[in-house]
């Protein structure tokens, strides 16, 4: 269980993080969304014990980042947005080094390394030198490093940056698998459609303030409480609009262009099909009729102003 309570980080006149609070339970995959400079990395670095909060705290399974940073470090795996790897070491030696640091018993180290290599699909690279790996493979090795001590919480800061589409897809699968394994995963990213695919919870931060937090569907409902149905007609949409506006459960009809209408609708799926039937019975020539779903990008654009600190 991760509980973040009123985290603040102040650098002189600049307040990088303003009272961020949220809590996550095992298995949660949390998408942390925000522009550059919004405060994502600072928040993640405070949770990882790299930065000391000016005010507030966070606890991971009872271990407090201020009072028990060592206890927190034993439970987290942190992958920074920019990271390096040691030269002149092999993949298994790199993992063995971190397994030693993370106090994995010597007798278990080999099997732990084999397991994380298998999970991250790096078994064939076991004896390769880390500097010889591609960017995507290095990213997976960094993730493997985060897993050697079986952490409860994974902090992945922009893990997909610089990866090609295939590597991104593989990383996504891996994160989903980690969520299934009961780990709390915090992923910060700019690639919003991808986050929506695998995060069950998102937080939107701007200028250090958490603007929204919760399950993706809940946040989508918050910004778009009514359903929006896009209708394309053969006739002039202006003539159709008044007739549609009078139909049941229609809250409003707006002209998108000459042949397109956007209808705010508060009915369910059955009532939606009745609306389509009513349009056809009224001899309106409907070419397209579909519900428009808001996505994370819409939510992000709606809630944020793009301002940075």
């Amino acid at each position: 269980m991760l509980e973040v309570k009123e985290l603040w980080k102040v650098y002189g006149p600049l307040t990088a993080v303003k009272g961020v609070s949220f809590s996550l339970k095992p298995g949660d995959i949390f998408g942390f969304i925000g522009s550059n400079g919004a405060g994502k990395t600072t928040t993640i670095r405070m949770i990882s014990t790299l930065l000391e909060p000016t005010h507030g705290t966070a606890t991971i399974n009872g271990a407090d980042i201020i009072r028990d940073p060592m206890g927190v470090r034993r439970q987290i795996g942190y992958m920074p947005d920019f990271f390096g790897l040691y030269d002149d070491v092999k993949v298994w030696e790199y993992l063995d080094f971190f397994a030693t640091i993370y106090e994995v018993p010597a007798k278990q180290r080999n099997s732990v390394i084999d397991n994380v290599l298998e999970l991250t699909d790096l078994t064939v690279k076991r004896d390769a030198f880390v500097q010889s790996l591609s960017r995507g493979t290095q990213q997976r090795l960094c993730l493997a490093r985060c897993l050697v001590h079986d952490p409860a919480l994974l902090l992945l800061d922009e893990p997909a940056s610089g990866l090609d589409p295939r590597a991104r897809a593989e990383l996504k699968e891996l994160i989903i698998e980690l969520g299934r394994m009961g780990k709390i995963v915090i992923v910060s990213s700019h690639i919003l459609p991808e986050l929506a695919d695998f995060c069950n919870c998102v937080g939107i931060i701007e200028r250090g303030e958490m603007l929204a937090f919760g399950p993706v569907n809940q946040i989508l409902r918050q910004i778009q409480p009514t359903r929006v149905i896009a209708i394309t007609v053969l006739d002039a949409a202006g003539e159709v609009r008044a007739r549609v506006a009078d139909m049941p459960h229609v809250l409003g009809a707006h002209l998108a262009d000459e042949h397109h209408l956007r209808v705010e609708f508060n009915g369910d799926h059955e009532q939606q099909s009745e609306l389509l039937a009513a349009l056809i019975q009224a001899n309106i020539k409907v070419v397209q009729f579909h519900e428009e779903h808001a996505n994370l990008e819409d939510v992000f654009m709606r809630l944020t102003t793009g301002a940075v600190q």
Binding site: L50, Y78, F82, G84, L85, F98, I101, Y102
Partner: peptide
């Protein structure tokens, strides 16, 4: 410089 430092600092060492 190589950005390996922070990974060492977040470890229980």
């Amino acid at each position: 410089e190589k950005r390996t430092w922070d990974m060492l600092l977040v470890a229980p060492i």
